[in-house]
């Protein structure tokens, strides 16, 4: 086989491999594994809620988009369609209960559904922000109960 043909074939093979890798690891990369990702911040539910209530902009800059481990006394569990939400209530407002709402990963729906109110739980999730009534955590898992 002539040298130039080998070079062209080599370039083509490398190109195909590069396209495959870009497709798999960039374009089609997996969502973060929120259950196993390590929390970048640990604090109590009271600390997180008060941070947003006292200075929303500062708290948003610090916590939005972060994976947070939270410890606090559970107020209730809400189940809406396929969502199970652990709710930590701190006050009453225009939307009724206001506090922290942690939407569970589907894998944790059953175990979260059996949690008892008033017990201390530790959850971990992705902080989506504060909507002027609640701090929203998504993709939550239960660390212990």
């Amino acid at each position: 086989m002539k040298t130039w043909i080998k070079i062209v074939l080599g370039i083509v093979v490398i190109g195909i491999i590069a396209i495959f890798l870009i497709y798999k690891f960039v374009y089609n990369k997996e969502h973060p594994d929120y259950e196993n990702i390590e929390a970048s911040i640990s604090l109590t539910t009271t600390e997180l809620y008060q941070a947003f209530k006292s200075n929303k902009d500062d708290a948003s800059a610090r916590y939005n988009g972060q994976v947070i481990a939270l410890t606090g006394n559970l107020s209730k569990i809400e189940a809406v369609d396929s969502l199970v939400i652990a709710v930590f209530v701190f006050e009453q407002g225009i939307f009724g209960d206001e506090g922290i709402r942690c939407t569970m990963l589907q894998k944790f729906n059953d175990v979260a559904g059996k949690l008892q109110p008033d017990g201390e739980v530790k959850v971990k999730g992705y902080c989506a922000g504060y909507n002027d009534t609640d701090v929203i955590l998504e993709k939550c898992s239960i660390i212990n109960q």
Binding site: N64, G65, Y126, A128, G129, N131, D132, I136, E138
Partner: peptide
């Protein structure tokens, strides 16, 4: 009224 967090 509606309010929606974009990161959600």
């Amino acid at each position: 009224v509606f309010k929606v967090l974009m990161k959600s």
